[in-house]
Computed example of a mutant assay.
Amino acid sequence: MPNPSTKPSLLHEVNDHVAVRMTIIFGSIWCVYAFLVFSLIPLAAPAWQNTLLYISNCIQLVALPALMVGNAVLSRGTDRRAAEDHAALMEILNDVRSEVAELKTVTNDLARKTNEAASRAPSEVVSFSDEAVINVTENGAHAAPAAKA
């Protein structure tokens, strides 16, 4: 298999260009019209039928390999783009997997803290900030400033 890192020679570039051009030309509707007219020539000139058959066979012998090479050249770009897309999607998938793992860790930690808080006895003193402490028992329902450490 050729090394993809090497630059193709001028001959390879010309061959690829010719193959792609022939593939585009043979794939056009104008080529269909031309071959339709070509196939109708024996109706107008039956004496030319053997010559036209020979020409038709020559065209087929040249066109088939040219079409195969042209399709191979055109598919190289598609294959390269597919490989790049695959690499990008795999990177995104790995990012998503790491994010999901992080979310699982956070969720498990949150569930553990919630279970610990639910299993603790209720507190009688609630502090919302460093400045206010509220005693939730009935006899101490007034807010008192917190002692600064």
Rank of each mutant, 00 (worst) to 15 (best):
A82N: 07
N135E: 02
E102M: 09
V125S: 01
A72C: 08
S119K: 08
V136Y: 04
I92C: 05
D109K: 14
V32E: 11
G140I: 04
K7Q: 05
L103I: 08
V32H: 03
I92H: 04
A72P: 00
A117N: 07
N15V: 02
N94Y: 10
T23N: 12
N3R: 07
A87D: 08
R80H: 12
S56N: 13
L10Q: 05
L40A: 08
A141E: 11
N71M: 10
R112S: 04
W48N: 06
L11R: 14
S123A: 15
E131G: 00
V18L: 10
A144G: 04
I24P: 03
L93P: 01
T6Y: 10
N15F: 03
M68S: 14
T107I: 05
N135V: 00
K113S: 10
A141Q: 11
S56Y: 12
M1A: 15
A88D: 13
L67G: 06
R81S: 14
S119L: 08
N3D: 14
H12N: 04
Y33N: 14
T78I: 13
A83T: 02
I55S: 04
S39E: 06
G140F: 09
T137M: 02
A117W: 02
D130G: 14
D79Y: 13
N94P: 00
R81E: 15
A132M: 11
D130L: 12
V126Q: 05
R80Y: 15
S56L: 13
T78E: 12
M68W: 12
A146Q: 09
I134H: 03
P4F: 01
V32G: 09
K7T: 10
V125R: 09
P8H: 04
Q49P: 04
N3F: 01
H12K: 12
A72G: 02
D85C: 15
V69N: 10
T23R: 12
V37I: 11
A47T: 08
N108H: 08
N115M: 15
N15Y: 02
A111S: 14
T107V: 05
F38P: 03
V126E: 10
H17V: 08
L43A: 03
V106M: 06
S9T: 13
R97L: 07
N3T: 11
R76S: 05
M90I: 08
N71W: 11
H86W: 15
A101S: 10
T107D: 06
L103T: 07
R80Q: 15
R120P: 00
P42A: 03
S39H: 06
T114R: 15
